[in-house]
């Protein structure tokens, strides 16, 4: 049994374990020409649309560099990507609105 060349590399979220093959890593996904990403992100084709377009799976935390998915329980984007644990370590750096966001999520999670 041989792995075919077509097999795509895997993105794994270090926080929730979400796994998905990704198609591109970077800021300019080739299949979504009209946008530019503000972070280096793991991206796939938008699988839910017949038209071209992209779907961001996750990125790297700008502080600890771990791979992290875009789920609101795993990371936030605030001009850069932060994993939740780095956000918690640096709460004072974020505006109140972000704190509220996180609290809301905590409530909804529990």
């Amino acid at each position: 049994m041989s792995e075919t060349a077509a097999e795509k590399p895997m993105f794994t979220c270090s926080s929730c374990g979400f796994e998905c093959h990704f198609e591109y890593f970077g800021k300019k996904p080739p299949f979504s020409k009209s946008v530019v990403l503000l972070e280096d992100a793991y991206v796939i084709h938008d699988p839910f649309s017949p038209n071209s377009g992209h779907l961001t799976l996750g990125g790297q935390c700008c502080l600890c560099s771990t791979n992290i998915c875009v789920a609101q329980t795993c990371s936030i984007f605030y001009t850069k990507r932060f994993c939740i644990s780095c956000v918690e370590k640096n709460t004072e750096e974020f505006p109140d609105e972000i704190h509220k966001d996180l609290q809301r999520k905590d409530v909804s999670r529990s």
Partner: peptide, 9 residues
């Protein structure tokens, strides 16, 4: 600031 994408219109 929470959006990680910009448009190339």
């Amino acid at each position: 600031y929470k959006i990680n994408v910009a448009l190339l219109s």
